[in-house]
Simulated scan of single mutants.
Amino acid sequence: MSSSSPTAAEAWLNRLADHGVDYVFGNAGTDFAPLIESLAEAHSDGVSDRAPSVVPVSHETVAVGMAHGYYLATERPQVVMVHVNVGLANALMGIINASRENIPMLVASGRTPISEQGRFGSRDLPIHWGQEMFDQGEMVRQFTRWDYELRYPDQAPAIVDRALALAQSPPGGPTYVSLPREVLAARLEAPVEVGPVRPAPTRPAPDPSAVDRVAALMEGCQRPVLVTSRADHAAQAALSDFVERHRTPVVQFWPGRLSLATTSRWNGGFDHRGAMARADLIIVLDTMVPWIPQVWEPSPDVPVVAVGPDPMFTDMAFRGFPAQESVYSDVSLFLTALGARLDSWAGRWDPESVPSGPPSADPLGAAVAEVVDSSVTLVNELGCDPAALRFG
């Protein structure tokens, strides 16, 4: 890029590229000028690979949704950039969704210039006073794993490192950084040694003694059921193998992501009216809400085990769902360890007659099921009853 020392904006974009970030999904404002200048300079110098591609998006919620969807497809976190507090407010719905689904991403926004005069990038429009806040990060703090404000240009690479590392730390989720315009436009006073990119933190493995206790519960029951509402690629593969080997149905309660093919013979339905109603052991896999207590809950003599990278869902203010055993673990590592401990043990379910609940009466879902196949990615926001859809 420039022969002089880089600006904070250049250092920020360069470090995003180092991390393999493909896209910045953005909705620009007056705070973007240093970033736009850095991108233009990179392209004119023929080094556009030193910055991610920028996708202009007309609404901030859509931008967050694009980062959300890109992660679901690739399991690589991307970046969203929005305009000061007003853009961040528009992005909030998407950030809440990503938080509750534990989707790693880095959300950045401008921050109205701090200074009124005397600095390159100081306030030069009336709106720069109107968009000032005492604490801009407060808007999203309940739904991000970490937030910070860039204060000095030479912090930019380290802040990118930390934001992306914490976004990917289990259980994962958005992080947020605010970027004041004067700081983005300022040049680094000295070169910064950035070093190699930090790898994502390792996933938590289960305590072997906890695996033994859950295995003993499995071996003492006849009709175990797994309850899920989402799964990453590794968990999907581990779950598919586990249920076939150990003859255990899966109930996908209000799934944000399908964990098991709906065509699987071990599909136990989508609520308590399927296999869950007959279970004598319930293992809840990283599921925030496994059933609705005022509608149905397990008999007190049915053991419940909660498993996940945050089995207590500590980011929620109030949540019941008591469990006899809570296992802190990545779901795929837990299923692999439990499967090894169980060896050839299998449940007593008849694979040809696993209860999946009453047939769906949803005509839209039935129509969609007729025209989609395994090559289709379906985004369904309460439009179709998942019980009516068939995905292999």
Rank of each mutant, 00 (worst) to 15 (best):
S2D: 15
A8Q: 10
W12G: 05
H19D: 05
V21L: 01
D22A: 15
V24E: 09
F25E: 12
N27A: 15
F32I: 12
E37V: 08
E41M: 15
D45L: 07
V57R: 02
S58G: 04
H59K: 08
H68C: 00
H68F: 11
Y70N: 06
L72N: 13
T74V: 08
E75L: 05
R76I: 13
P77C: 10
V79N: 12
V80T: 06
V82R: 03
V84G: 07
N85K: 13
G87N: 12
A89E: 04
L92A: 09
L92S: 07
I95L: 08
N97I: 02
A98M: 03
S99L: 02
R100C: 01
L106K: 07
V107M: 02
G110K: 06
R111C: 07
E116Q: 08
G118T: 08
R119F: 14
F120H: 13
I127W: 05
W129P: 03
V140C: 03
R141P: 01
F143Q: 09
R151D: 14
P153T: 04
D154T: 13
A156F: 05
D161R: 02
A163F: 08
L164E: 11
A167F: 05
Q168M: 15
S169K: 14
P171L: 12
G173L: 11
P174L: 05
V177D: 02
P180H: 07
R181I: 11
R181L: 14
R187V: 04
E189A: 15
V192C: 00
E193Q: 07
E193I: 00
G195A: 10
P196V: 02
R198P: 09
A200K: 09
P204K: 03
P206S: 08
S209C: 00
S209P: 00
A210R: 07
D212K: 11
V214S: 04
V225L: 09
V227F: 11
T228W: 10
D232H: 12
A237W: 02
A237S: 14
A238T: 13
S240M: 12
V250P: 04
V251S: 12
V251P: 09
S259P: 03
R265Q: 13
R265A: 14
H272I: 02
D280A: 02
M288L: 15
M288Q: 13
P293T: 13
V295R: 08
E297L: 01
E297N: 02
V304S: 04
V304Y: 03
A306V: 00
G308R: 01
G308C: 01
P309K: 03
F313I: 00
T314N: 06
F318A: 12
G320R: 13
F321S: 07
P322R: 03
P322Q: 01
L335W: 08
L338R: 09
L338D: 09
A340T: 07
D343G: 12
G347Y: 05
G347M: 07
E352W: 12
G357S: 13
G357V: 13
P363C: 11
G365R: 11
V379T: 11
V379P: 00
E381P: 08
E381L: 14
D385F: 06
L389N: 02
